[in-house]
Every structure is written in C-alpha cells, then in structure tokens.
Simulated assay, not measured.
Amino acid sequence: MKKSLLLFTCIFTAIGFAQNDEAFVDSLVAQKMAELELQQNPEYFYRKDYCDGNIQMFNLPDGKLCTSKSTYYSVYVFWSEDEDVMKLQKFDNCGSFMPISISRKKTIEKFFKDKQALKQGEIKPYEGEKVDENAYGNMTVNSCHKEYKFVFDGKSFEKSFREFDLTNESKYKNVNAEHNRSLPLVKLDILLSEMFKNMEDSGSLLREK
C-alpha cells in the first residue's frame, strides 16, 4: 500500500499537480468583475455553480494535472460587448477559459428587458404537499447550488438557490416547484444550463494557456 501511494505521489510530482479551492476561484472572478467595473461596463453578471463535495480533475494545456480541493466550482461571467453581442468567460478551480462571443438576441436579451423581475422574484424552498418524516424515501438529495450576481448601470444585486428547490423528486409533490420554475431568473438559469452543456459538448470552451 505504501509503495502504491509513493508511486502515485511521484507521478504527480513528475508531471505537475495543482489543487485549488473556492477562494482561488473567487479571486479570479473578483479580478474580472473589478476590470469590468473600471471599464464602466453597463451590464455584466455571473453564475456560480457547485455541488457540495463534488471533486473534478482535469488535464491542463501545459500537461499538468489539476483537481478541485474539496468541491469543484465553476463560474461563468457575462458582460456586454455592444448592443448585439455579449462576452462569456468561464473560471474554475483550475484557472480561466478563453472568452467567447454570444448573440444577445438569441440568448438573454428577453430576460434583460425587465431587470426588476430578475431582482424581485423570490425562489421558495422545497415544501412537500404533505408532512411526512419519510417524504424523501430512498432518494438521494444532491446539495447543488446556483449563485448569481448582476450589475446593471452600476447597481448590483445577488440571488441564490438550491437546484433541489425547483424539483418534484420527493415522495410528495413540491408545492413551490411551479412557482419557482415560472420565475424569470429560473427560466434564465435553465437557458444558460442548456447553453453551457452545448458548449461543453461541442468543445467551445477552451482553457487559457
């Protein structure tokens, strides 16, 4: 066992190994947000995703290995480029990705027409239609979270929720699921999740070297 552990350690030492936590990701995002503030960008926001205890490992462009420390965090920062185009850049425990351009009209334009709706809509916690100590049965509840920060014309607000609050996966129906999924923020979130999945599948997201 000790020989295996020693070999494993030697391999990581030889090829290079990085392990970063949430503070590392937050510092990258804070730097980007500060840059956008200095540029007086009129519209920018980010979405932060994480599932408690989920660990990811990646091969980096320079040949090194990188793994998340404890939990993997991914943050997607959007900012306005002009009236028709927004930029998107991803950050995670292993660094930053190349910025890419997306069409406002084909993606998020309709959600930005009513910014107050994004701000005011409140996501309610999961509530079963009946009270039962065994309401969750044998299901596994993954503690996955979404955090948003929006900055519009110099004014900011933040929103957050658990993915579980949007579902109907327990023994009894979640009475708040329909309300939650009708909110503009959740509709935007669903659209972004689909967008990110398509980018991952197509290989559009490339790490910066």
Rank of each mutant, 00 (worst) to 15 (best):
K2M: 12
K2P: 01
L5Q: 13
L6D: 12
L6Y: 10
L7A: 11
T9Y: 08
T9M: 08
C10S: 11
T13G: 08
T13H: 02
A14M: 13
A14Q: 08
I15G: 12
F17K: 01
N20T: 01
F24L: 05
S27A: 11
V29A: 11
Q31V: 09
L36A: 05
E37Q: 15
L38W: 06
Q39A: 14
Q40G: 00
N41R: 12
R47L: 15
Y50L: 13
Y50Q: 11
D52A: 13
G53M: 10
N54L: 13
I55S: 06
Q56L: 11
N59E: 07
L60A: 09
P61F: 08
P61T: 06
G63L: 12
G63K: 12
K64L: 08
K64D: 06
C66H: 05
T67G: 12
K69M: 06
S70G: 04
T71M: 09
Y73Q: 06
Y73W: 14
W79E: 05
S80E: 15
S80F: 10
S80P: 01
E81A: 12
D82L: 06
E83R: 08
D84H: 11
V85C: 03
V85P: 03
L88W: 07
Q89A: 01
K90C: 08
K90P: 04
K90Y: 03
D92W: 14
N93C: 09
G95C: 09
S96D: 08
F97K: 01
M98S: 09
I100C: 07
S101H: 13
S101T: 14
R104W: 15
K105M: 03
F111Q: 03
F111D: 03
F111K: 04
D114M: 06
K115A: 03
K115G: 02
Q116I: 15
A117V: 10
Q120M: 14
I123P: 05
K124I: 12
P125E: 12
E129C: 04
E129Q: 05
E129N: 11
V131P: 00
D132V: 07
E133L: 15
A135V: 08
A135K: 03
A135T: 01
G137A: 02
N138V: 07
M139S: 11
T140S: 10
T140E: 07
V141T: 13
V141N: 14
V141E: 13
C144V: 05
K146H: 14
E147K: 07
F150A: 03
F152M: 05
G154F: 12
K155A: 09
S156A: 14
S156C: 10
F157P: 00
F157C: 00
F157H: 00
F157V: 00
E158S: 08
S160L: 07
F161K: 02
F164P: 01
F164K: 00
D165N: 05
T167R: 13
N168L: 01
E169S: 15
S170W: 13
K171V: 06
Y172E: 02
K173D: 09
K173C: 02
K173G: 01
N174K: 04
V175M: 07
N176K: 07
H179E: 09
N180Y: 09
N180R: 03
L183C: 03
P184D: 04
L188P: 02
L188I: 02
D189R: 04
L191R: 07
E194Y: 07
E194C: 01
E194F: 06
F196T: 04
N198I: 09
N198S: 15
M199W: 14
D201K: 14
G203Q: 10
S204N: 13
S204K: 15
R207M: 15
R207K: 14
K209D: 12
K209W: 04
